[in-house]
Amino acid sequence: MKTINGTLRLAKALLWRSRRQQGRRILLYPLGYAALILGVWLVAVYTPGILTGVTQRALERSAALRFGNVPGRVGIALVMMFMEGPYLVALFSSVAAASIAQSCVTVERSRGGLELLVSAPYSHREIFSALLLQSIGLTAATWLMLAVGFLGTTTVGLMLLGSTVHWTSAQIGLALIMPLPLAVWSNLIALLLAVRFPRATSQGTIGMTRIIAVQPAFLFLLAGNFRPDIDPMRLAEIALLSGVMGTLLVATVLFRRFRLDALLAG
């Protein structure tokens, strides 16, 4: 109980400082990503001829298969929203999550803040858990802004297009929730890399760390595009489950292998 209280107190302090440091940026970055995805969606739906004939036909066919007989533009909007959108949300959340992990550990370490945290009245376990909570908390906030921003706007867009397709709460829930574990998985992969290779991640290989960390979301985005025969709901379930399993696996490795003194000495 004492450990949990210490962890929560430290995590709250770290999150408070992140909010003070980033201010409105904490909301604006994910909304920027959401706007980017929305832009792709709008261009695909409203710009005639922007898609190649093959892509156009594939999307229309996919829409007919999944949503029945819907008009061309609405069909494309639906496919873009429910079959591409969540994976794009997952991908951009993962990119942000990798940066968050690095700023929580690498940036903190390089300015000496990590050393000071260790000298504060907390056990190493409490400090590690608090850093983890901070990193996951910021990742979850990013995902929430992105998912709500994108899915909310596209839902309104679909209504304006006159879509009459009805969604079950399971479908909406899955589309909304699925990107979260993938983003947290990326976050933990980036944390693991930052912890295991503290020098590497602070000497110009940050880009490589991000590329490695976003792989889960990227692979599912590819899977959705290259295997249209897989039912989207099933694919989303697989992605959700993989995210949860991957998160647990990396978290276990982190808890077992993490040594603050090695990180400080590295």
């Binding site: 300015r111 000496g112 000298s119």
Partner: peptide, 27 residues
């Protein structure tokens, strides 16, 4: 308390906010 030659303070917030952060860390 440990005073390093690096200040270890967050550069993008005020001194007051930095002190507030460390006071929160200390409970």
């Amino acid at each position: 308390s440990y005073l390093m030659h690096r200040t270890a303070l967050a550069s993008d917030i005020s001194v007051r906010d930095n002190l507030m952060f460390w006071s929160r860390v200390l409970g």
